[in-house]
């Protein structure tokens, strides 16, 4: 049997892929050199030449876990407040304080005053968590900024929850200032203001989730801005004005707005003997809306990140 040079190189060619543990260039070169051998001999070498290593896929880098990455996103977002958000937080607070001063001339204490104070306080949450977050995600998506997160091994929920949490936190000072100012202005008791500890995060979750979902789903950033503004206007008109004076249709719209339940829960606590069951019920609605809207926002993020 005569071994031609080409045939002699076949054993080399076929043993290389079995021994090749990683992508080493010399072996690749050798394999290309044996391309003159008969087709059946190439059968063994073909997979290696095609790029599929016998050694199998390389090890992947670590995945970022949910909590640490959520905390990292939260911290980063919170730090943005220092750079970009403080003027807007003032605007949010002044807006609510201004509305209460206006309403002082119209409303004369009682249930209506409670509604105005609670509505104005929750309005701060709506302004920041719903409106500003919708704008932020809308712009981030349009400018391609989501690519940064999408090329990091971070769970989508961490990005959405981190940002939503940070925006909800931005609202704390404004909401507290508004609530305290409102109590003094309308002579309401400050005894149960501690309930803000529950109202801000839960209303914040519901509204921030809604804002994030709107921002990420809007096809264009202008729509995200528009939807955020509309959401906030709705929270203003339907939340601050006392419901007793509204027509039936508007009341129905009011019931559909998640911020309403935050307002109701807060307003109830100004009473002589608050019905804590109803307060809890309202807060539970906020929490449920929060869970659902944040889940939708996470889904929307996933969808927006890979196009």
């Amino acid at each position: 049997m005569v071994r031609t040079p080409a045939a002699a190189s076949v054993p080399d060619g076929t043993t290389v892929p079995a021994g090749a543990t990683a992508s080493n260039d010399p072996s690749e070169g050798e394999l290309r050199d044996v391309s003159v051998v008969p087709a059946d001999a190439l059968g063994g070498a073909a997979p290696a030449a095609g790029g599929q290593r016998v050694a199998g896929p390389a090890e992947l880098g670590p995945r970022a876990r949910l909590w640490p990455s959520l905390v990292a996103v939260y911290r980063a977002q919170l730090s943005r407040a220092r750079v970009a958000r403080i003027p807007l937080l003032f605007v949010a607070t002044f807006q609510s304080v201004g509305i209460m001063i206006l309403m002082r001339g119209v409303v004369d204490g009682g249930g209506e005053a409670r509604a105005v104070v609670a509505g104005s306080a929750v309005l701060v949450v709506a302004f920041v968590a719903l409106n500003l977050l919708a704008q932020y995600f809308g712009q981030l998506r349009a400018s391609g900024g989501l690519d940064h997160y999408a090329t990091l091994p971070v769970p989508p929920a961490a990005v959405v929850l981190g940002a939503a949490g940070a925006y909800a936190s931005f609202t704390v000072p404004g909401t507290v200032v508004t609530a305290v100012f409102g109590c003094l202005l309308f002579g309401l008791p400050v005894t149960h203001l501690w309930v803000l500890v529950a109202v801000i995060p839960l209303a914040g979750a519901a509204l921030a989730g809604l804002g994030a979902a709107l921002g990420l789903l809007a096809p264009r950033p202008e729509f995200a801005t528009l939807l955020g503004q509309l959401g906030m206007s709705a929270a203003l008109l339907l939340g601050v004005l006392p419901p007793e004076r509204m027509p039936q249709v508007v009341r129905l719209a009011r019931d559909l707005l998640p911020s309403t339940y935050g307002v109701e829960a807060f307003a109830r606590t100004f009473g002589e003997r608050p019905d804590w069951g109803l307060v809890l019920g309202d807060l539970a609605v906020c929490a449920a809306v929060g869970v659902i809207s944040l889940a939708v926002a996470t889904w929307a993020y996933r969808r927006a990140a890979v196009r």
């Binding site: 670590p62 970022a64 876990r65 990455s69 980063a76 730090s79 981030l140 400018s143 900024g145 690519d147």
Partner: peptide, 25 residues
């Protein structure tokens, strides 16, 4: 990428640290 809008409002140091954290460090 060509866009930096996700990092724009962070400090240089926090941008680098956060990115590292999100890479699982």
């Amino acid at each position: 990428g060509q866009e930096s809008s996700a990092l724009d409002e962070l400090t240089v140091s926090l941008a680098a640290e956060t990115t590292g954290r999100l890479r699982g460090l």
